[in-house]
Design a protein around this nucleic acid. Structure first.
Lengths: 163, 163
DNA sequence: GAAAGTAAGTTCCCTTTCGGAACTGTTAGG
DNA sequence: CCTAACAGTTCCGAAAGGGAACTTACTTTC
């Protein structure tokens, strides 16, 4: 399978990955969430090759995750900001951050802490059900085909569990 | 920056991405969560080049995300299973799935639905604070350097907000 | 007993992508 | 006029990926 076909797969994970599933995109977005907005600042903070950065910013803009906003004329200069679609990726960032904190930090502990404004405490994210509020773990769920399934097949073991 | 240096960056996102941040790894893990376990079944369901699949399975096994478990002797055959560390990636899968369902499904709706065993309903995940149980959105949080920060710098705009 | 099948890789070749550095275009300031 | 700032673009050699054939170690079928 080639990469350009990924956004047409009948799978929301594949479609999400067609946008954020490469080596650099989520690191660019990390900087966006930290309020970095300009080309040079992305480049300096990330150490990314400039043409790769230009390509990623263009793809994210085309996908509606970022918008280019002019911040001066003559010479015209534009900065990149998260759209609502981009801000909606925060749960993805947060779950990757929490996993990294738990499994990839050494003795020293996590490099960056996140404080919840509402309660003032350093916090992790817990995923709960949108319907009942109870926790949602890997084995608390079953899967079934939805309306947009068109040709998608679940493997036998996953189907058996849905019964 | 080269890819092999990513796991030593003082950033939990970068460290997580050093394991799951490439084009194929999360799709392999999707199949794992659907209880696919054998080389040939991964290959057939994903349409991935065999040597790329072999490489990803090895890296995931080396990282402790999957384990190889023998399921027959003569000839010895092994299958791949999620470890606790691997199962802990479920929030990452779920947040990407929910984002794809919301932003990348067409008219038809999402291709696959997830049903919460506890309440029996089709459900999304909501991220709430581990400390107070209130929702955690992108702008509900501030960041600060943690014990493992060693040289990590936050951008001026993010620091200003922490004050 | 030879031929074919099965599962899990490995090897090869060719194309695409990436890292790193240099170059371009536009405008401001000295 | 010369230099600097910012946002790219171009070029080259190296690395990674797609696709198909080959390998190994057995079992099953003819």
């Amino acid at each position: 399978m080639r990469w350009e076909e990924l956004d047409r797969e009948p799978c929301s994970l594949a479609r999400s990955l067609s946008i954020v599933g490469d080596r650099w995109t989520l690191l660019v977005l990390r900087e966006c969430f930290l309020r970095v907005r300009r080309f040079e600042e992305f480049e300096q903070r990330l150490g990314i090759a400039r043409h790769v950065l230009a390509d990623r910013l263009k793809k994210l803009t085309d996908a509606g995750v970022l918008v280019k906003v002019p911040y001066q004329e003559r010479p015209r200069r534009e900065e990149y900001r998260l759209t609502e679609k981009g801000l909606d990726l925060y749960p993805v960032m947060l779950s990757l951050l929490d996993w990294g904190d738990k499994w990839m930090s050494g003795e020293e502990g996590p490099p960056v802490l996140r404080r919840h404004k509402a309660c003032g405490k350093i916090a992790r994210a817990v995923q709960v059900c949108s319907e009942c509020g109870e926790p949602m773990g890997a084995r608390d769920m079953t899967v079934e085909l939805g309306p947009g399934a068109e040709g998608r097949e679940l493997p036998p073991a996953a189907k058996a569990e849905g019964k």
